[in-house]
Every structure is written in structure tokens, then in C-alpha cells.
Design a protein around this nucleic acid. Structure first.
Lengths: 101, 101
DNA sequence: ACATTAGTTTGATGATTAGCTAATTATCTT
DNA sequence: AAGATAATTAGCTAATCATCAAACTAATGT
């Protein structure tokens, strides 16, 4: 949980995820979208990988990153539901109040 | 957004929010629930306040902290919906796919 | 075999962070 | 006016973080 929120606490990493949402991309392709050096991007990728938010697949000399949607969803909605909003998935106890019509 | 995720990236601060979910608490009461010094807790509170996740109200010599539920909800679900899950509140473009019955 | 391309690792630097003790501010209580 | 209590600020340290350039690894092309 900490790793995930820490990963999300950087604008560059959030943007990487947003890009990855539309499909897998190579490290180089991703790096081109940001005004930072390749090593820096590599470090960001590493944080995202450690958090489990992305996975890699090496093909030839490229490394393809793809978003682990389920991990992001589970973390975000799981935490949200612990506060009573955002679905009652996996249960956050108090359950959604249903108003009488 | 960055401030909010940064605030959420610490276990102590997440636990503070969880406690605050059940109602307002004084700084001292909150601090008692953690094995760290009061100044350290004060710093955590400061981070949460900067992120807008909590508000304070001074009464006598106590400072009462209360959770800003809407801020947390907006941030979490807003970001989630940008990835297509967790409600289409405030809109995250692609809208929820509705399957034909 | 050699050069090129894609990406990561290493090592350094400046900034931020979580933690502490001690000092300070503000509000009671006696 | 003191003393006690609640909380924050000040000043410090150790650890982590984002960043870069340079060195390295691996795969492809000639």
C-alpha cells in the first residue's frame, strides 16, 4: 500500500501510468514523453515495477511496459471503500446507505 | 494531487485518517495512538493539513482535527475514474461501458 | 568483429523527509 | 503570578529521493 501511494505521489509516474492506460509502450517511447534523462526515467519505472503497478516484457532490445490495471484498481478502490465510498467491493464494513424512496 | 498522494504514502498518516473517519479527535488523542513523539505527529498533521485532507478547530488548549471526507473522496475516485474504474463521477471521459442485457 | 541502439546500473549531488530533544506559545488552573 | 497542560516551532541527524553523466550489458546490423 505504501509502495503504491509512494509511486503515485510523483507527477511523472502518474503520467506514465496514464500513457500506459492506452496500451503497452517501450521504455524509450515512454521516456521521450518526458523532459528528463533516460536514467531518471529508468528509476521511475523501477519504482512503478516495485509497487506492482507495471510489468515488463523484453522483446529484442526493447523493454515493453504495460499497466497492471487490476493492481491499481484494487489499491485505489480498496482503500477508498475503507472510507465508505467508491463501491463496497472487498467490503469496507459500514456498507452503502440505501435511501428509502 | 501530488500532495494528497504524498500524504497517503505514509502508514502513520493513513492510520490517522482511518481513526478520524470515526469522528474528530484532538491532536493529543491522535498522538497517543502512535509510538512516535508528539512533534513528529504534529509534522504528520501538518502534511495532512497541507494536502487538505484534514481541518482543524481550536477549542481551549486543544486542537481538534477532523477528516475532510470530500477531499479524500474526490481525489481517490477522481483519479480512479481517470482510469476507467470506480464510478464515472466528475467524469473521466471514456464513461462506463454498459453491457446489453 | 565492430559499431549502433535500447535500457539499466553506478556513483555523485542537492533536496526532502521522518524522527528526536529542547524551546516556545497559548490556554487553563490554582 | 505561577504552574500545569496542549500543541507547535526550532534545530539537528540519518535516510530516502529525483536528478544527472558516465559506464555497462545485451541485442541487432553491417
Amino acid at each position: 500500500m505504501t509502495d503504491i501511494f509512494k509511486a503515485l505521489s510523483d507527477p511523472t509516474r502518474r503520467e506514465v501510468l496514464r500513457i500506459l492506460k492506452s496500451g503497452p509502450r517501450s521504455a524509450g517511447d515512454l521516456a521521450e514523453a518526458f523532459p528528463v534523462s533516460k536514467p531518471t526515467m529508468s528509476a521511475h519505472f523501477s519504482v512503478l515495477r516495485t509497487a506492482g503497478l507495471v510489468s515488463t516484457q523484453k522483446t529484442g532490445k526493447s523493454v515493453i511496459y504495460h499497466l497492471n490495471v487490476s493492481v491499481l484498481e484494487e489499491a485505489l478502490l480498496g482503500f477508498a471503500s475503507a472510507f465508505g465510498f467508491g463501491e463496497n467491493r472487498a467490503s469496507g464494513r459500514p456498507a452503502k446507505e440505501k435511501e428509502l424512496p
